[in-house]
Amino acid sequence: MLWSRIERWLARNAPDSHSRLNPPADPAALRQAERQTGRPLPEGLAAWWSAVDGITPAQPAGGETPFRLFPYRCDPYPLAEALERRNLYLHSLRDTVPPPLADAMEEWLTRCGRDRAGTYYSRDAAPLWLPQWLPVGGDGMGGGLFVDLRAGDQYGCVVRHGTTSHDPEPSWPSIEALLAQVLHRLEELGGTSD
């Protein structure tokens, strides 16, 4: 798996980052995530969290910018934090909609939830969050990356989001493609993973 090569690279070339890796996620937590989202986790995402349950964020020291493992200056989330953030985004959305519009918003979210993964809504008011989106990494400022768990040929694609919107299309077709880019970027920095 790509993750094991990334982990070896970190152990050899970035021991501080390697020391912040969390142990594997509990299989029961993975099943709980599927129950909460109402969708199966993509195989690659489940395998990745089964290998490492995210990373403990770096604390900036002396004005230094901490190293972030994922693109867009994101750190991988532990599964529990991914679920917490998903719930926070969903609650924030529902808490900010005026009561007269609540039913219309729920209908809209239900309609969007039936769309194929990778479908986004440039002509509609962009949702802050769909129930089928699961965050996988964050930039510490409200933005990050999510996996689209809706059905379709782009099921499991990874999308970048900000504090008020998301990219108009997926950045990677899968978590495996994201990890491949991470490994490529690390190897360009130098050092080895073998």
Results as ranks from 00 to 15, higher is better:
101 L>Q: 15
135 P>G: 06
128 L>H: 11
67 F>P: 00
31 R>M: 09
153 D>V: 09
154 Q>W: 11
53 D>A: 11
176 E>Y: 02
83 L>K: 03
93 L>N: 06
177 A>M: 06
56 T>S: 07
26 D>V: 08
17 S>H: 08
4 S>F: 04
33 A>S: 10
37 T>Y: 09
160 R>Q: 15
136 V>M: 04
183 L>R: 08
184 H>F: 03
100 P>S: 09
189 L>R: 13
15 P>Q: 00
68 R>A: 15
116 R>V: 04
181 Q>C: 02
121 Y>G: 02
165 S>W: 14
162 G>R: 03
109 L>M: 15
73 R>M: 08
31 R>D: 14
187 E>V: 10
74 C>E: 05
74 C>K: 11
120 Y>L: 13
40 P>I: 02
158 V>W: 05
175 I>S: 00
37 T>R: 02
160 R>H: 15
52 V>Y: 06
146 F>K: 10
114 R>L: 12
3 W>D: 01
96 T>V: 10
185 R>M: 14
93 L>V: 06
169 E>T: 10
35 R>G: 11
129 W>P: 00
108 W>A: 09
103 D>M: 10
190 G>S: 08
14 A>K: 09
110 T>P: 01
187 E>Y: 00
69 L>C: 07
183 L>W: 12
8 R>S: 15
128 L>W: 08
185 R>K: 12
82 A>E: 02
18 H>K: 05
3 W>F: 14
118 G>T: 10
143 G>Y: 07
34 E>C: 09
10 L>E: 02
147 V>E: 01
86 R>I: 04
144 G>N: 09
28 A>I: 00
41 L>N: 10
98 P>L: 08
112 C>Y: 12
45 L>P: 06
63 G>H: 00
142 G>I: 04
79 L>A: 08
167 D>M: 02
193 S>T: 08
32 Q>V: 05
32 Q>E: 11
12 R>M: 06
36 Q>A: 04
87 N>E: 13
194 D>A: 14
